[in-house]
Design a binder for these strands. Sequence first.
DNA 1: GGCGAATATTTTTGATCATATTCTGCGGAT
DNA 2: ATCCGCAGAATATGATCAAAAATATTCGCC
Lengths: 216, 216
Amino acid sequence: MNVSDPKLPEHEAIYKKIRNMILFGAVLPGQPVTILGLKDAVGAGVTPVREAIRRLTAEGALETLGNRRICVPKISAERVDEIYFARFSIEPKMVELAAERVTDANISELEALDNVVNAAIGAGDVEGYLESNFRFHFRLYDFAQTPILRKIAISLWLQVGPSLRVVSGRYGTSNLPDKHSEALAALRKREPIAAARAIEEDIRQGLDLTRQSLGV
Amino acid sequence: MNVSDPKLPEHEAIYKKIRNMILFGAVLPGQPVTILGLKDAVGAGVTPVREAIRRLTAEGALETLGNRRICVPKISAERVDEIYFARFSIEPKMVELAAERVTDANISELEALDNVVNAAIGAGDVEGYLESNFRFHFRLYDFAQTPILRKIAISLWLQVGPSLRVVSGRYGTSNLPDKHSEALAALRKREPIAAARAIEEDIRQGLDLTRQSLGV
DNA sequence: GGCGAATATTTTTGATCATATTCTGCGGAT
DNA sequence: ATCCGCAGAATATGATCAAAAATATTCGCC
């Protein structure tokens, strides 16, 4: 059916589909999620959807209530602290390593990705920002060549995704985190620490925004 | 069939069963894993096993090769660096928080758990050590009340588990990591930083052992 | 009208089956 | 001897169905 790649299993494709829905704000925090609902939403059988859901709950993107219902976790101030503590621990480290390993071609690719981010911000396109921002960050993290840390970062992003969507919707795109050009400048000069600091600042802006919207 | 708790779904029980097999060394790194094999090993249908496997691959405890086979990941020097970087970032922090929140009863409970660890070390019981050591650490982490960090830690332990088993088998129980009494002493004095340092040292011993066995 | 039990509906869960994919072993050609 | 291709076996995958569980609704009773 899906002509893109007949070899990779469907539960994998469904997983990515649902993951993107969560990452880019198609589902809201606290919103209940049913297998049959998702089945209709993504147009698949129930078996792949079930497997995708197990994977996403393992990553913290979904939560199983005591009874057998699934929902998108609502974030609290304590959880925000946890998530951002982990983000500060993991993501700058990846940037540091990436800065030691990037090629000039890699940096050009990141610049192109950042242009898309800036365009989305300029256009006030929240969904576009969320998606292009994700692409920029994780392409950068790719260059660190640390798949385990990357996996942790994905999990953390999945947990802030829904909330960030709410925040963005409320405050618009003008105050959205963006220290990308500072990071790129540091990459070009091959200054790992400076690059890590820039992304740390980027993360901090996201944290401030999230805290604001929680009224903490 | 399982009389323990008829309410919780089977895929959950199967997940824990397989997880324990991985954590406590019943499976070896690089070993291939099949759904039918696990089905027989844990005595369950194929559906719950499949869901458990998806969950475990999401946690990095299992790995899907390019073709549709599953195996227990073999660890490399680079992966060890990643995993232990993350452990050093996450686990001491949890201990620090736990030290601020533990009650005297909590500490007594931990002491009892540590006695089991020491008994296993004294008896040269590798499997018993792995299991009781896990219980001690994660009971301690429980007291931090940081479920997200805890989940990350579980994932990291799942990834070092199989290797640690190999290491233990090679060097015996005498050199196994154990800074628990130092940690307990710090807890009793309510010194969060000292407790965190003790666990950091505990982790470092595990790292050294793993590095040795990799010949790095 | 309000409360509680019983029924109906929806949803999840696990088993089973058909299909597709991959691996293995064998035979033949170079 | 090595490499290639072709059956045959084993495995994974996805759909479908039956049973269980949970939620929503209805009915009877006070």
